[in-house]
Amino acid sequence: MAQTLSRGPVTGTAVKAPGKKKPFVLDLYGTAVGKKYVMAITGLVGLGFVITHMIGNLKVFLGPINEDGQRVYDIDIYGEFLRDLAVPLLPRTYVLWGLRFVLIGAVLLHIHAAYGLTQINRKARSVKYQSARDYQIANFASRSMRYTGVIVLLFIIWHIADLTWGSTGADWSRGDVYFNIDQSLSRIPVALLYIVANIALGIHLFHGVWSLFQSLGWNNPRFNAWRRNAAIGAAALIVVGNVSIPVATLAGIIEFDDTVVSVHDLHGSGEEEGADE
C-alpha cells in the first residue's frame, strides 16, 4: 500500500500571538464584520441624502411662487437656501461644502468596503459550483448589489456633470435649477437614463435598507416583520419620487416659463460671487 505523507494531529489552535493594537475603528474596519458596519453606516448616510435630495427635487412641481411680488421658481429658492445654510454664522456655501465632503467620504468608504468584501468573498469560494445554483431566498436585488452599485456610481458622476457643471451639452445656467432640469431632461435619451438609473438605485436600496439592520445588529423580533416593508417602502418612495421628474418633464408638466424671474435677480446676487452650487 502506497504510503502518503503523515497527517499530524490538531492542537493549540486557540493559542495565538497577541496582535498589534490598532485604534478601535481601524481594528474593526480590518474585519469583514467591521466592513459591513461601514457599509451600513455609509449606506445610511447615502440614504439620508437620497431622501433629502428627492424631497428638495420634488419642489420642482411647486413651480413658480410669488416672492416680493415677483414670480420665481420655488426650487431655485431652495437651491439658494442650500448655499446660504448657516449664513451668517459661517460664510456662504461652507456648510454645503462640508456636507459634500461627508457625502463624498461616505461614498468612497462605501466603495472601498464593498471592494474589500468582494475580494474576501471571491477568495472564500475559489472554485465555483460547476452546476447551476437554485437560489431560494437570495433575490435579484441582493445578488446584483455590486452591479446596481456601479450603475448608480456612474450615474452620480454623470448627474453632477449634467446639472452641477452643465457640461453635457444642454443649455445650462448656474443656479437656475428649474431651467436646467427642463433643458436636460427634455432630451429623451437623458430622461430614459435618469429613469433606468433610479430604478437601479431603488433595487440597490431595497436590499441595502433591509440589510443594514442586519449588519448593524439592529434586530428585534418586534420590528423584524417591518424591515422588509421598510425596505420596500424606501425603495418605492425613491423610485417613484425621482422618476416622476423626468416623466413630468417629458410629459410637458415641467416646462420652463421665461417670464419667471431668475433667483439671482431676486436677491440681487449674481454669478460674480463665483459660488458653486
Partner: peptide
Amino acid sequence: EEYFGSCTNHGE
C-alpha cells in the same frame, strides 16, 4: 474570518 467569506445578508 480566517477561513470564510462575509455575510451580505442574502438569507440563503
